[in-house]
Design a protein around this nucleic acid. Structure first.
Lengths: 229, 229
DNA sequence: TAGATTGTTAATCGATTAACAATC
DNA sequence: TAGATTGTTAATCGATTAACAATC
């Protein structure tokens, strides 16, 4: 199915396609053209066809795409059918929120265990997930091959925990800490979810708009003044 | 300070620069060149200089950049000195985690109020933030000009709540729901933080690597077999 | 002054868009 | 068959990188 080296931008669009297709399927729509899909997603039809063509030929001339079939193709491309095994490190507020409310299985992942240093949490279960002591992490990973670790520890321990994880064979980290954990040399796959980066981008766009509005207001004001004399 | 229309990519790099500069300042470093910064961030010196030059001239030939001064410039660019006012809608697990643990003020935002429909939550306070009834949202927004809303409601109510927010003057939303809330026409600023999109991208990269490894293993196997005969 | 490093202009590279033959 | 729409090749656009004069 996979062919050329696919650019990051393309990959980041795939989950959006998936969500949209699920939505369409939910509305009972089972056929869609690239132009209609583009309309709904704010993308050009060309781009959509280019994106899909990185992975294969999923459409049919004169018809478009079958919503269900395309959805399954994209799910497979994203690896949702692989049942990746995950552990979660750090049962603080975010970790807890993920354990309780984030449906890992809906995205093809199995969250199998959680780890924390807090004795009050160790041994408990949230949403069916057992919480182990951090001391048992290395041992656990040796016995249970694990595809990814969800990193929700305080940022102070992010680097140290990453170290333990990589030394014990973890190849991918979903990083919720506000710290960059990519070692320059390592082949570790890191997916960052930096809340603060996201908020700061938003802050930028809000500020930009405020500046534009202020500039417009100032222009109007100047005009009023100059027409007064 | 601002000059040309700045590309999205540039803006997304700014928070990373900020974090790195904070880190450097924490280590007592007060001078850095674009090449050293590039080294540490995995970017080319050219790109870094280009990025900064979108907003002004912050360096000095033969010297480089003053860490503290540059940090302040970037903070200002991102709007961290504006004290944007925020409300949070939906005090579920993620909402709660943000209220308790996310330091809005560290990023120049004031989280001033939260809203929920749950009578057991209404009237309570978490981390000094009062929780109001959703019924009071429209009224609150009329009385308190608010720059952004943090959307942490269940995805079923995301669209309806977005509607209320925009009708009452909210111009920007930090969207934690797994739903696209951008109306095609509206000028609403939306910053998405889609957990599932992020996880699926990670899943893709893990799958890609697994496929590569499997392919390599198969190649080795074939070679072994062919050399056997 | 000589060395270092910026800010900026030009060159390259990659991603998006347009066009169109293939075909359902 | 005629109309629609794909997959793909070519053209355009934008972003990154390289080069270098300006200057601290």
């Amino acid at each position: 199915m996979r062919r050329v080296k696919v650019s990051n931008n393309v990959i980041r669009r795939m989950p959006r396609y998936l969500r949209k297709l699920d939505e369409l399927a939910g509305h009972g729509i089972n056929r869609i053209s690239s132009s209609e899909l583009g309309e709904q997603l704010g993308l050009t039809p060309s781009q959509i066809r280019q994106d899909f063509s990185c992975f294969g030929e999923f459409g049919q001339q004169g018809y478009g795409y079958n919503v269900h079939a395309l959805r399954e193709q994209i799910a497979a491309i994203l690896g949702m059918d692989r049942g990746l095994n995950a552990v979660l490190i750090g049962v603080g507020n975010i970790g807890r929120a993920l354990m309780d409310n984030f449906c890992f299985s809906a995205w093809g992942c199995n969250l199998l265990a959680a780890f924390d240093v807090n004795p009050e949490l160790i041994g408990r279960e949230f949403n069916g997930i057992h919480i182990y002591s951090m001391d048992d992490l290395a041992e656990y990973l040796k016995e249970h091959p694990t595809d990814l670790a969800v990193l929700t520890v305080p940022k102070e321990s992010a680097i140290a925990v990453t170290d333990i994880l990589t030394r014990n064979g973890i190849g991918a980290i979903w990083n919720f800490t506000n710290v960059d954990i990519t070692g320059p040399n390592s082949s570790l796959i890191v997916e960052n979810l930096h809340f603060s980066d996201s908020l700061l981008s938003l802050s930028y766009f809000i500020s930009e708009r405020k500046d534009e509005e202020a500039a417009r207001a100032a222009r109007v004001e100047r005009q009023k003044n100059s027409s007064k004399k």
